[in-house]
């Protein structure tokens, strides 16, 4: 019951406050721009046979698979953009799960009434609900915008909705878990976001350094899988429910990051 109340409150933070609505407005505007100036023009360009041939020639099979994997070009382009752009939104939106409540002392009121771990996991769960809603809104928003030009094409996008939305949501899961962890350590959402950037660059550079330093150790190539989002390149060449082949990777990242965060949450002074 406590978990449900906290998760519900987390969702309300975005959808029930003025600040949340401003964030949503900014999100909608950015996504509208992405659709109007990236997805839609690219779809028009690629639907031209001559251009497709040229791109196939330049970028090879990868581009060809990417373009033709889904039922419509709009879905393929949405898939490409969402896989790379949505994680940034996820980091920004979920950066304040614990940080400012801890700095303000609000956690002191809450932890008198529920355990630290209930609070931690429930807020993570609430963020997952928010991510599912945001992904669904962007996908159905893309369908709506597509319908302005071509209703039939827009209708063709509908059957892919469950697979696309579910998979993008899965991709976002470890990013949200990472922000759960970092928001326990940070004193504000901004600091948690900075931590995530520093961590990302730090881990990436460390992996590259170690791999270059010990080139003969081929097993070090597995280190690439440490980073959340490591499966995104692989996902580009998959479509529909076959994308679930790579689902264990984000799930494993999520579990590990959440557990590390839970240890910090359990031990940290409030």
């Amino acid at each position: 019951m406590a978990a449900w109340i906290i998760a519900q409150h987390e969702v309300l933070k975005l959808f029930g406050t003025r600040r949340g609505w401003l964030s949503l407005l900014a999100f909608a505007l950015v996504w509208g721009i992405i659709y109007a100036f990236v997805i839609e023009p690219a779809a028009r360009l690629l639907s031209n046979q001559e251009t497709t041939g040229l791109i196939g020639l330049l970028l090879g099979d990868q581009a060809d698979r990417l373009i033709n994997n889904w039922r419509t070009l709009e879905v393929s382009l949405y898939w490409l953009v969402a896989l790379y752009v949505m994680p940034f939104f996820a980091i920004l939106v979920s950066a304040d799960q614990i940080a400012s409540d801890r700095a303000r002392g609000t956690l002191r009121y809450l932890t008198l009434r529920c355990s630290r771990l209930t609070l931690y996991f429930s807020r993570f769960f609430g963020q997952l609900v928010i991510m599912a809603l945001l992904v669904a809104v962007t996908y159905f928003g893309s369908i709506a915008m597509s319908a302005l030009h071509d209703v039939q094409r827009a209708q063709q996008m509908l059957p892919d909705a469950p697979a696309v939305i579910f998979n993008v949501w899965l991709v976002l899961m470890p990013y949200v878990a990472l922000m759960s962890l970092l928001s326990v350590l940070a004193r504000s959402s901004r600091q948690a976001t900075v931590f995530s950037v520093v961590l990302w660059i730090g881990v990436w550079l460390s992996i590259r350094f170690v791999q270059n330093r010990f080139e003969s150790a081929t097993w070090l190539s597995y280190a690439d899988w440490i980073m959340p989002g490591a499966q995104i390149r692989g996902l580009l060449s998959l479509s529909d429910w076959e994308t679930l082949q790579l689902a264990p990777i984000p799930l494993a990242h999520t579990v590990v990051l959440l557990l590390i965060g839970a240890v910090f949450m359990w031990r940290r002074d409030l």
Partner: peptide, 29 residues
């Protein structure tokens, strides 16, 4: 829970929600 209560010295409520909503949430917890 419900037996021990406290008024911490510098703790502040969430500025984004009304007093009533937050107190209701605490009571429900």
């Amino acid at each position: 829970v419900g037996r021990l209560s406290s008024m911490p010295q510098d703790a502040r409520m969430d500025p984004h929600f009304t007093v009533g909503r937050q107190l209701t949430q605490y009571a429900r917890l």
